[in-house]
Design a protein around this nucleic acid. Structure first.
Length: 287
DNA sequence: CATAGATCCTGTATGC
DNA sequence: TGCATACAGGATCTAT
């Protein structure tokens, strides 16, 4: 579930539950979630206090008050950050449990597919007066970020001889966009994902970014309603997806614009959805 | 060097 | 019912 809107919903949710609380205990239930930090995550965390939650693309982090370090969380494909009573039963895929000195709710990282990540890291200068974890420094800003530089994106893309969908998914060029919002942005822009990025004019690229902004903003609004005050509800199926998706997951359904059946194509071992009439693919001979 | 494809996991849905 | 296969919202490594 986690692309920019979902991660942002989690950030806002986790923020109010974690701010200024002192960590008292950390349990790691699956080594992969913490990668190499299996032996020292607890040592790094216990005694620290969380500050304001930040996000870059799909990464979020909680800085430690008074330190130049933080806890990074990446949800991967299936990660969830939950706020749960400390005596509540462990979730089946609970990977990391963080308890607080106040004895209130735990912060829990639950992740079925174990692509997610929970790690401490040092904060470095982000070049704009803020801090960013060193592991996240290579991630570009997202298109909703006021400091996102459209011109840098466009010049980078025009020297890039790959498919436009791959560009949208390249977190080093523009962050926050995943398979769903890439397909939705491309559908709204009437561009097929296999178009060579370098063949798309700056005007069309700007429009594509605008469409990405719009669809992710709308998703963020819808995601906000799924937040439950008892715990951070990371349920991506909350209304938005059944109502508002035009292309993603809509194989065989009529294109809302022209009525043609939405098609599914293989892409990077998963799927791309597009309208065969509105979004003309680039043929091999044209590459 | 750039790029397209494979890969890490676990679970669910589908088909024979 | 049992078994095999395909696929899932990410990121990164590896052949070519």
């Amino acid at each position: 579930m986690p692309e920019l809107p979902e991660v942002e919903v989690v950030r806002r949710g986790i923020q109010q539950w974690s701010i200024n609380r002192v960590i008292s205990k950390v349990e790691v239930l699956h080594p992969r979630a913490v990668r190499r930090q299996i032996d020292d995550l607890a040592g790094e965390l216990v005694g620290q206090q969380f500050g304001c939650a930040s996000r870059r693309g799909k990464y979020l982090w909680l800085p430690f008050v008074g330190e130049d370090s933080c806890l990074i969380v990446h949800l991967g494909m299936s990660g969830q950050l939950l706020v749960q009573p400390e005596d509540s039963q462990f979730e089946k895929h609970l990977r990391v449990r963080i308890a607080f000195a106040d004895g209130g709710n735990d912060l829990r990282f639950v992740d079925q597919r174990t692509f997610g990540l929970v790690q401490t890291d040092e904060l470095i200068d982000d070049g704009a007066g803020g801090g960013i974890p060193s592991h996240v420094a290579h991630i570009a800003r997202d298109p909703l970020d006021p400091l996102f530089d459209e011109d840098i994106f466009i010049s980078a893309v025009r020297g890039n001889d790959t498919e436009i969908k791959r560009v949208l998914l390249d977190q080093g060029l523009v962050s926050g966009i995943g398979n769903i919002y890439a397909d939705e942005s491309l559908w709204r822009s009437k561009i097929h994902g296999n178009r060579r990025a370098s063949s798309i004019s700056p005007v069309h690229l700007k429009n594509l970014l605008d469409q990405a902004r719009e669809v992710m903003s709308q998703a963020l609004e819808a995601g906000g309603t799924s937040f439950d005050s008892l715990y951070v509800n990371v349920n991506g199926d909350s209304g938005y997806f059944s109502r508002s998706l035009n292309a993603y997951g809509q194989e065989g359904q009529p294109c809302p614009r022209c009525g043609s059946a939405i098609q599914r194509e293989k892409f990077m071992n998963r799927s791309s959805f597009s309208c065969p009439r509105c979004q003309r693919p680039q043929r091999h001979s044209e590459r």
